[in-house]
Amino acid sequence: MLSPEVLTVLIAMLGGAIRVSTPYLFVALGETLTEKSGRINLGLEGNLVLGAMMAYAVSFHTGQPWLGVLAACGAGLFLGLLHGVICSLPRVNDIAVGIALMSFGTGAAFFFGKPYIQPQAPRLEGLALGEWSSNPALKQALLINPLFFLGIAIAVLLWWALANTRPGLILRMTGDSEASARAMGVNPVRVRILATVAGGGLAGIGGAFLSLSYPGSWNEGLSSGQGLMAVALVIFARWNPLRCVWAALLFGAAGAIGPALQSVGISQGYYFFNAAPYILTLFIMIASARAGLAAQSAPGELSIVK
């Protein structure tokens, strides 16, 4: 039988995995889609923040949080379009444009988001899946936002489509070898722009989750680099949408360790518990890279793995 403290920490990690993981999941899926086409967009943090602001603003003005989600997706699509078009010009570096657009996206979000820091916008309602339990902590952990399930559904769909559909094949081919894509009559520029736009839109939805669900508020400190870390998760997940789900869940759970341990009285070194997700990721990367797995599953045209 588990002691109450261990149970508390485990429930908190379960809840944390579900609550904290969703923005990571959306950004990671968006980045997977983009990188599968052979391009990297390091600027999805900008999409996340702009998406969060737009979602909050639209939800506040219309009273419809789901319209906010659409608006966040739109903002993400827009930044993705900018990235996609600019990077399809010859000799333009996609990593640098990503970082510049991150600055532009967050700048725009902060500039236009000023009036929305104070008011309360309607939030997305969670689905109460823990009603069967008498444990309030477990009930709370199982109060799950529909966006979480949407993210998992998109991950499964993406995984299936990449392997089994013609668009999936074209996307993978473009990412692995531009020359063979051209030989098949595929326009790699168009494929990459579409993949970057779609990936940007997904990252925007991740932002909507931050501002409309958890923590469910808009301010300039809302994202503490989740968008940047999610890009790291993609390599960690070896460009596989299903592994993105596990990676995001792991990251969310690791993020909940710090507060959860403190709540049961273990507070020594909380700085390192708070850094747990990063330490964990690094160790898993080292362990998995030794087997040479990352290099094998990486899209061949991707600038950072060349």
Binding site: I86, A96, A100, G107, A108
Partner: peptide, 9 residues
Amino acid sequence: ALLQGLIFV
């Protein structure tokens, strides 16, 4: 930040 982003892009 906006101006910087624009210039850099």
